[in-house]
Each structure stands twice: as structure tokens, then as C-alpha cells.
Amino acid sequence: MSGAFPPLREELRGIEPYGAPQLDVPVQLNVNENPYGPSPEAAADIARAVGEAAVSLNRYPDREFVALRAALATYLNSSGGSAIVPEMVWAANGSNEVMLQLLQAFGGPGRVALSFAPTYSMYPEYARDTLTEWVAGHRAEDFSLDLDAAGDLVLEKQPSVVLLPSPNNPTGTALPPEAVSMLCEAAASYEPGGVVVVDEAYGEFRRAGTPSALELLAVHRNLVVTRTMSKAFALAGARVGYLAADPAICDAIRVVRLPYHLSAVTQATALAALRHAPELLGRVDDLRVERDATVVWLREQGFEVADSDANFVLFGRFADRHAVWRGLVDRGVLIRETGPDGWLRVSIGTAGEMAAFRQALLETVRQTTDQTSTRDTA
């Protein structure tokens, strides 16, 4: 056989798979997980539900996951939504698969997906994997959106999909309702128009007074709001993401979804978790308090810090951020080297984990400063 093997698509050659470093260190604050797992009661209910599903694993699951869609609609109506019915809800294996399905349905050759950098690093990969052209505008210095420039770019590129994380990853910046409305109107002004996807993976962590785009679903038919159970629900290991949108959008996604894409075990797990929503979400307030305290502390140390409505904080700026990241790892603390050059991102953990992070950061910065001073005087 001549040529390179395997016969991979040419544009994929040499590309490393997506993924944050997985290192065995005591304090892991790099992938925005909820540090507080389910209670023994919730875990027991999940185990019981999975056990009940196990006796019929010889049969395919409900491919329309009717019960789960109804339970998710009820939850969304209690957390910022209004009049969301099951036909407006879709779910998949993590919000990553939800996003990929949106690009499969509405992207493709000759179509454009658009977002504003810095933003979630998987977005261009969804576009690449669906052969959709990727266009990235830019955020302002404080990571907000310049609404005039954003609207002009949408009108110029006429994307079929606009991806808007709120809170944004990796900056934690939330979008005001007027930004969502303006971009929905811009994306509806050309033919055949585009869908505007507001990715609220971290929506439950937003600060008091920060609205959800769920409130705008009744106003904009081309609006999609995505959520996940990985973060606030402490269910990252279950891989459950979902969206709320016009029923016509959900029906369009049904065309591209794989058969029986949500297993019976996944559906049982998610339904049991939703029964324990108040408890599983009970630590969100604790994480908000810890996040805000972390922002204050980092600023007191002289760091530049982005305002955050998520369960992580972006801070900097470092001349050599990799050296700082490495210094933290050497001290048993793993955070994320991501975002604009010179910045690092730390997930919010328990009080003990954040104390370990603060100590390790001070020691690392002191060490790197001493090394720089030594080199300068040598």
C-alpha cells in the first residue's frame, strides 16, 4: 500500500486530540468539575435506577427519551425558563454532542459557523468535523462583546450557526440579554438565516441578577440555549447535555442523531439526578462564594482577573505562563493553561483545595521571580 496510513482526511493529519492534561496530583482544578459529588442518598437512588434499567438492557432504550425531556423541561422552567415543553428539549451525550449535532444539522460545506475569541476551544473542532467554515471575531479587552462590531460581522459572514457561550469559557464573561437579542435579530435578517446558540454550560453559576437566555426563547425563534448536567449537577461522569429551542429545531436535530444515542443507563441516571436537583445544586452557592473570594484574593496579589459568572477564574498575566503552570503541578496543584497568551484558568474547588492553590501560586510566583532576579544580576 502506497502513501500514508491510515488514509486520514488530509486536514486532520498531525492534529492532536482535544483534551486537558490528566495528571495524578492531589489537587485537580483544571477541567471545571464540581468538587462536591452526589450524596449517599442521591448516589443510592441513581444506582437503584440504573439497576432497574439493567434488567431490560437486552432492549433498545426509548430513542425519543420522552420522560427525560419532560423532566428537563420542568427543571428549566424552574431555573429561568418559561412555558418550555418537552418538544422544545433535546439531549445527548454531553453538551459536546449537542453542539456537534447542531453543526451537523445546520452547518456543513458552504456554510459558516461563527464565534468571538477567546472562546471555547472545541467550537472550531465542531466546525472542522462537519466541514463547516469557521470564522472567529474578537472580544474587547475586558472580554465583553462590542455589539456593533459583532452585529456587523454576522451580517457580513451570514453564518448558519453563531456560537455564544454565556458564561464564556475560558473567561467566565456572561452576555447581557440585549447582546443575545441583537445577534438573534441579525442572524434572522438574511436568507435562509442562522441559529444563535447560547451555550450556558455554566449557567447555574451566574451571579445574582445575571439573566439566562432561556428568558428570550419565546421572543426569538432562532435561539438555542444549551445546558449540561456535568457542572452544577456534579454529573460529569454521566455525560448528559441538553438544549431548549423551538420544536422545529429539535425535529431537525432528530434527522442527524444516531439511533438510540442516549442509552437506557444514561437516561435512568439523568432522571434520578433530576429528582435530587435541589440537593445536587445545593453546593452551587458555596462555589459562587469561593469563586468571588478567589477573584478578590487574586486581585489583592496584583494579578489581572476577569470577572466570572462561572465556576472558574481566568487570571494573569504571566511572561511565562507555562513555567507558572509547571510550578503549580510540582506543588501538587493542576490548573489549566488556556485562554489568551499570559493567562491561566483555575477551577473552583473546595475551600481546602483553594487554600492549597493559593499557597502553591504564591510559592511558584516567588520562585520564578527569584530566578528572574538571579538571571538579571548574573
Rank of each mutant, 00 (worst) to 15 (best):
M99V: 10
P40T: 03
R254Y: 12
T369N: 03
V329S: 06
V240F: 14
A117N: 07
A351P: 14
P118T: 10
S121M: 12
S212T: 09
P6H: 08
W343K: 09
H322Q: 11
Y260W: 13
P159R: 06
L163N: 00
A218I: 01
A67I: 00
W343I: 01
N77T: 02
M354S: 00
G14M: 07
L274S: 00
R221H: 10
A218T: 07
A351V: 14
N169R: 08
D285Q: 15
G19C: 05
L76G: 05
P40A: 09
P211G: 01
F106V: 08
D376G: 13
R257D: 09
V256N: 04
H261Y: 11
V265N: 02
L183G: 08
Y36T: 11
Q104F: 03
S373M: 10
A248I: 07
S373A: 13
V98F: 12
D330I: 00
P124E: 10
H322C: 02
D292I: 05
S82C: 10
L76I: 06
L280Q: 09
A234C: 14
E133N: 13
F315K: 02
F116I: 07
R375C: 00
D24V: 06
A4H: 11
V180T: 06
F65E: 09
V154K: 00
Y18R: 13
T372K: 12
P176V: 01
A113L: 11
E125H: 15
R139I: 06
L153G: 01
G19R: 04
R13H: 13
L362T: 10
A43C: 04
V255D: 12
V296C: 12
D146W: 06
D370C: 05
N32A: 15
E125L: 14
V198P: 03
P17N: 02
R283E: 13
E200C: 01
R358N: 02
D146Y: 08
A234W: 10
A306D: 03
L344D: 08
L361D: 03
S308G: 07
A187Q: 11
P259W: 04
V240T: 14
V162H: 04
G342K: 06
P176W: 02
Q101A: 13
P17T: 03
P86G: 02
S121H: 11
G282S: 11
D286A: 14
A105I: 06
Q28M: 11
P247N: 10
W134M: 12
S79K: 12
Q28I: 09
V324C: 02
G3Q: 05
Y123G: 05
H220K: 02
N96W: 14
G327F: 00
T132N: 08
H276S: 07
R336P: 01
D142Q: 09
S230T: 09
Y75W: 11
M182S: 11
D146S: 10
G193T: 03
E353H: 14
Q367H: 14
A20C: 01
V112W: 10
Y126T: 07
L153A: 04
